[in-house]
Amino acid sequence: MRDVFVHTVTDALDTDPRLAVVTADISSAAFDDARARHPDRVVNLGIREQAMIGVAGGLALTGLRPVVHSYAPFLVERPFEQLKLDLGHQDVGAVLVSIGGSYDAPASGRTHQSPADVALLDTLPGWTVHVPGHPDEVEPLLRDAIAGTGRVYLRLSTRENTTAHPIGRFSPLRQGSRGVVLAVGPTLDTVLDVTSTLDVTVLYASTIRPFDHAGLLAAVAGSRPNVVLVEPYLAGTSAHGVGEALADVPHRVRSLGVRRDVEVRAYGTPPEHDVVHGLDADGIAASIRAFL
């Protein structure tokens, strides 16, 4: 996904004079060629993440469209007040593109994990959040974000589904009657696998903010109002979206995602962390069966 991001932005820099790129060392070398062609619009600030967002806000104040990129904890958590004030309060836009996600690199430990990124941005108004599950979903989401003016978060991951799916609104991929499973981004393959013998509707979302209230409501209309959320970040991040979508429908919700009750002090691999968080195939299957 990161390669698609770099290629797409590099290509867009040549045709869109509004576009600018701001980095804080991470992935900076990937933009060396672009920087050589556009030295005023491709800026690496060094390891200065607060300045990274402040500078993006300033660029946006002059009418440029900044794309800001770093590892998720250093893009969202460390400069969070800059996101709130230098972008949101100034009423300007930017495209944030993260890598690393929740535990893409668990060997790096807790400092390099950011399962709360989407939940944090969810406390701020006006953000669009894309969680692509396949590299082919990245380019159209990114080009749409670059063409706009708003605040967009594009959450890239090393975890990928085997095929791309339609982007935009929630996509129904399977119809059933016992409930609706909403799979976000790279959780889809596992969800499709473990629900293959279950009578449930499967929805796919590569864009989780704004939450597609109509899409969920339509899916629930053809099923029992039992909703399982499967998100690759903090469990329950989108539970309030389900509640708003189904405000007038008696319903049940089960939220699966990264655990909130514990800091997992372990290194290892992403699949090993999936097990800890109940996001491996056995864990998701057990949760869905128990819920239904």
């Binding site: 600018a20 005023d40 619009r41 800026v43 607060q50 300045a51 967002i53 402040g54 500078v55 993006a56 806000g57 300033g58 660029l59 946006a60 104040l61 002059t62 009418g63 440029l64 900044p66 007040e81 800059q82 004030l85 230098d86 309060h89 100034q90 009423d91």
Partner: peptide, 30 residues
């Protein structure tokens, strides 16, 4: 947003210089 001519909203300290660097960069780029 409320006052024409006021270039940035401020109050929490330590934000203006980062915004100023970005603004200066943007003016140079444009």
């Amino acid at each position: 947003v409320l006052v024409p001519g006021v270039e940035i909203g401020s109050g929490s300290l330590g934000h203006g210089l980062g915004l100023g660097v970005g603004t200066a960069l943007g003016l140079r780029a444009r």
